[in-house]
Amino acid sequence: MTVYLLCFALLLVGIYGLLVKRDLIRIIIASGIMGYAANLMLILFAYRRGGLYPILEKGKTVGARVMVDPLPQALVLTSIVIELGITAMLVALAIRLFEKNKTFDITKIKRLSG
């Protein structure tokens, strides 16, 4: 139960950063933290205490022991790749915004409103 609460706390850290921070780079990092929390949660759901690694070798028997669920690990790999892409996109946009405005402060980059 504690690990789930800590995982939720990580999600909240990400949301807090997104809502409160005024710096483009910090916002990008906060969105990354939020993504890590979601990935961690998927991995936690798949974890079995004392479970085996989910590869059936020749002659290996599982017996009474359970296996770790392999599917969420595959999902998390995919999701990490997607997050890499999103982060790269955000950083590229932040660099172009800096070139145009000479600042990373979002309170000073406010051309669109209403």
Binding site: L11, L24, E83, K100, L112
Partner: peptide, 24 residues
């Protein structure tokens, strides 16, 4: 243009929040 980058950045941040929620 500067406005387009600003709009895209805003959109991307909102999009990444919603993607995280979908994943959860």
């Amino acid at each position: 243009h500067a406005e387009e980058f600003e709009a895209a950045f805003k959109y991307a941040i909102m999009g990444s929040i919603s993607s995280t929620l979908v994943l959860v």
